[in-house]
């Protein structure tokens, strides 16, 4: 176990090093690109389409968007990077015997670390606006649960995509769908009542909702949200490990 952690550490450093190797602006891309995306969504949704986040609350739209945008970004980034991580490291996987499960874990962690820069950015803006409160610390356990969900999904993808590479393309569209059908861009009450329960078919919804509850309502997420998150995280993690361990024996054959 300590060896696995050790290995994850090295792969994480390796991932971060190769991410910034040879890039001129380095870490600034990490901030510039998402900020540009946020400005785009802000303009479209608050100015053109006039979306109101909560019908009865006075939150500027940009705060609403920022509050979960980076938490969301970690999910597709982690999943998509996990999808190709075995193929990208095929030389290593074929030639050196080591616990390959460290690969999806480390790229998922890397995606999260990367996007936490954005989260810190948001918290700073929020604090400067005088809106910070102690409940914000509740974000941490929710983030941990979300990370476990991502790690599980990442392991699953890493194993499956190595066999069926087309799934990587499909997953891009699935994730785009998950984004638009999750309450990152709008609040759930914006969905007509009879469709609202459908939003919960998206596993991400429940995490995003919990962040909103903590940040804007300064409250604990509801009991069912907590139970839901724990169940989804545990389920994905379990399935991820199971599927990965089942399929990793064949990696050297298919690469």
């Amino acid at each position: 176990m300590s060896n696995l952690l050790n290995l994850v550490k090295y792969f994480l450093i390796k991932d971060i090093k190769s991410r910034y190797a040879g890039s001129g602006l380095g870490i600034f891309w990490t901030i510039i690109l998402p900020v540009f995306q946020i400005l785009l969504y802000w303009f479209v949704f608050s100015t053109v389409m006039r979306v109101r986040p909560y019908s009865n609350a006075q939150i500027p739209y940009v705060y609403f968007l920022l509050s979960t945008f980076f938490f969301w970004l970690s999910i597709p980034e982690g999943i998509l990077k996990s999808g190709t991580v075995i193929i990208e490291n095929s030389e290593l996987v074929k030639k050196v015997p080591f616990p390959t499960i460290a690969l999806p874990i480390s790229v998922t962690l890397s995606a999260y670390l990367h996007n936490m820069i954005g989260v810190v950015f948001f918290v700073l803006i929020y604090a400067v606006s005088g809106l910070s409160h102690l409940h914000l610390f509740l974000i941490i356990p929710v983030l941990v649960l979300q990370l476990l969900f991502s790690v599980g999904a990442g392991m699953f993808m890493a194993a499956i995509v190595s066999y069926v590479r087309d799934l990587q393309q499909v997953m891009g569209y699935v994730l785009q769908g998950m984004f638009f059908l999750s309450p990152v861009l709008y609040s759930l009450d914006a969905i007509p009542e009879r469709f609202r329960s459908l939003a919960y078919l998206n596993p991400v919804t429940i995490y995003i909702e919990s962040y909103h509850t903590i940040i804007f309502q300064k409250a604990f997420p509801g009991l069912w949200h907590v139970v839901g998150m724990v169940c989804i995280s545990a389920l994905f993690l379990f399935l991820g490990i199971k599927v990965f361990n089942r399929l990793n024996e064949g990696f050297a054959d298919i690469l």
Partner: peptide, 24 residues
């Protein structure tokens, strides 16, 4: 084949060790 070009020689020694399950 376990080496990484961006790592220094020293880092690669430890990295390879952990690939084989040897503690730092």
């Amino acid at each position: 084949s376990g080496f990484h070009p961006e790592f220094t020689g020293m880092e690669n020694i430890y990295f390879y060790g952990s690939l084989l399950g040897i503690s730092p």
